[in-house]
Design a protein around this nucleic acid. Structure first.
Length: 492
RNA sequence: CGGGGCGUAGCGCAGCCCGGUUAGCGCGCCUGCUUCGGGAGCAGGAGGUCGGGAGUUCAAAUCUCCCCGCCCCGACCA
């Protein structure tokens, strides 16, 4: 079995090991692209289902736009090109040709199939979508447009890490069009709140919602908002973003509408996304040295029943009881798996399900059967106790809720223990030469100062929290006046 | 693109410095028996163009050169 490196030894290795041990994903022959295995994809499917339901509850609909973007589209919005140009994959030909090089048969792009206008593999879809919106919008009666897309995108990053930064990744990208600036801003903030809710209530991952600084703003946005989480190594991870695009894309793609008074106006836009990166955050927030730990609300399998037997008669009796228990529990708790595999002893199965992060294990052996009970064990804290069959329908959901709450509380506690108010540059550098963490500091608001801090320490402003200390002070770096504190951290 | 490391069975590695029968080990895999309440034991078995190419040599996993790929640290970037 795969040994898992301890977090204290090598955090980055531990992360890779957990992914491998839980069979979430693995590297592929394509540089920077991963294969998401069934165990990992099941989590993504749960994320999709939960978010998708929420989006639709709020009036959004799904659509699908093409993978390829005409090269010229990307150039329409000046800041947008600048932000993405350096990481785009380009399609230049549409046909291959067999040829022989050094006596070996190989294929090359057929020179005769060179495209007149090359295509970009989408790094994000604002441009294709807004080009289409122009055709759909004429009147204020056509607004708002509230569309979401589930898709894959490519960003040719120099260095990749499983889930956190892969060349190809999966995400959802919402793209909305509104009649007024206020409506656009309200949508942007509403979706950020959806992400906060999802991170905290479903993934048990505490986050700080706030506004990004101008330096960290999405290419082409008027304002970018994010939710920021803290990983167990005290580094920050941006878990989702929501952008107020103002009229930038409407102007670049000439998307106008006529209002009730007959006046022609540019449309107001938003975009917002959460990607498979969130799965990296999920892993790094809760997992331990024995492998994956999943909050029950996002776990694909809520509980696994491990039947224990010595001979065929016992096996038949115990398995029958296990199947019945599982069937009784499923309507209330969701997926319950009965692990009847022969040739594997119970201890092996316990270890395997722990590695894979199943929140609760139910052990059912002849002794339990005789006493009409099961042993119920929690993955995260190893709490284990006997539960009578009659009480299980209540005890299991209660246990799952306890686990969900524990994981959230533990994550909040870890974050609070690694969060500091810092007012001097010496303390600031000392923190990041040491264990690191979140530093709430005064900042003058100057982008150059922010950049200087990053150059010196590799620490960045994660965001300007909505709920922040607004007592005026002096910038932690340059000493100029500050209106309030912002959150600094080293980031993934 | 700069610095470092590594390519030997599905996975993890030894062997290389100092060339020499049939290339080993652990885990996993297959078969059988005994096991089964915290990662079982025994017996038998399958599995390799030693990353690729060229060279040196009677002889190359081992020495030389070139190429390819991967990992880590930077630079870059959600």
């Amino acid at each position: 079995m795969a040994g898992i490196t301890k977090r204290s030894e090598d955090y980055s290795r531990w992360y890779q090991d957990v992914i491998q041990a839980a069979e979430l994903a693995e590297n592929s022959p394509v540089r920077g692209c991963m294969v998401i295995r069934p165990n990992g994809y099941a989590i993504w499917e749960n994320i999709q289902r939960t978010l998708d339901d929420k989006f639709k509850e709020l009036g959004h609909v799904n659509a699908y736009f093409p993978l390829l973007i005409p090269k010229s589209f990307l150039a329409r919005e000046a800041e947008h090109v600048e932000g993405f140009a350096k990481e785009c994959a380009i399609v230049t030909h549409h046909r291959l040709k067999q040829t022989t090089v050094d006596g070996k048969t190989t294929v090359i792009p057929d020179p005769d199939s060179k495209l007149e206008e090359e295509y970009i593999i989408r790094p994000t879809s604002e441009t294709v979508i807004w080009d289409q919106y122009r055709k759909w919008i004429q009147s204020y009666r056509d607004l708002p447009i509230l569309i979401n897309q589930w898709a894959n995108v490519m960003r040719w990053e120099m260095r990749t890490r499983m889930f956190l930064r892969t060349t190809e990744f999966l995400w959802q990208e919402g793209h909305t069009a509104h009649a007024t600036a206020a409506e656009g801003r309200a949508e942007t903030l509403q979706m950020l709140e959806v992400y906060r809710w999802f991170a905290e209530e479903v993934l048990a991952m505490p986050v700080i919602p706030g506004t990004k600084t101008a330096n960290e703003r999405f290419a082409g946005a008027v304002e970018t908002f994010s939710i920021e989480a803290m990983m167990q190594d005290r580094k920050a991870l941006q878990a989702a973003t929501s952008h107020d695009l103002g009229q930038n894309f409407a102007k670049a793609f000439d998307v106008t509408y006529q209002d009730a008074e007959g006046k022609v106006e540019y449309v107001w836009a938003t975009s917002w996304g959460m990607s498979t990166r969130i799965m990296g955050a999920l892993i790094m927030t809760h997992s331990d040295d024995d492998g994956l730990v999943l909050p029950p609300r996002i776990a694909h399998t809520k509980a696994v029943i491990v039947p224990i037997w010595k001979n065929d008669e016992e096996k038949a009796a115990v398995c029958e009881a296990a199947d019945k228990l599982a069937a009784d529990l499923r309507p209330a708790v969701g997926r319950v798996h009965v692990d009847k595999r022969d040739k594997m002893r119970p201890g092996w199965k316990y270890a395997e399900w722990e590695r894979k992060g199943v929140p609760v294990r139910l052990e059912l052996g002849p002794r339990d059967l005789a006493g009409s009970q099961v042993m119920m064990a929690a993955r995260h804290d190893r709490a284990k106790n006997a539960v009578p069959f009659a009480e299980l329908a209540e005890a299991l959901p209660a246990e799952l809720e306890r686990i969900q709450a524990d994981l959230y509380a533990a994550a909040v506690k870890r974050r609070e223990e690694a969060t500091f108010k810092i007012d001097s540059w010496d303390d600031f550098t000392a923190l990041y030469e040491g264990d690191g963490g979140f530093a709430h500091c005064h900042w003058c608001g100057d982008g150059d100062c922010e950049q200087a801090i990053q150059d010196k320490t590799r620490v960045t402003i994660r965001n300007i929290p909505f709920e922040r200390d607004e007592t005026p002070g002096a910038c932690v770096h340059c000493g100029k006046p500050s209106k309030g504190r912002v959150v600094f951290a080293q980031a993934y």
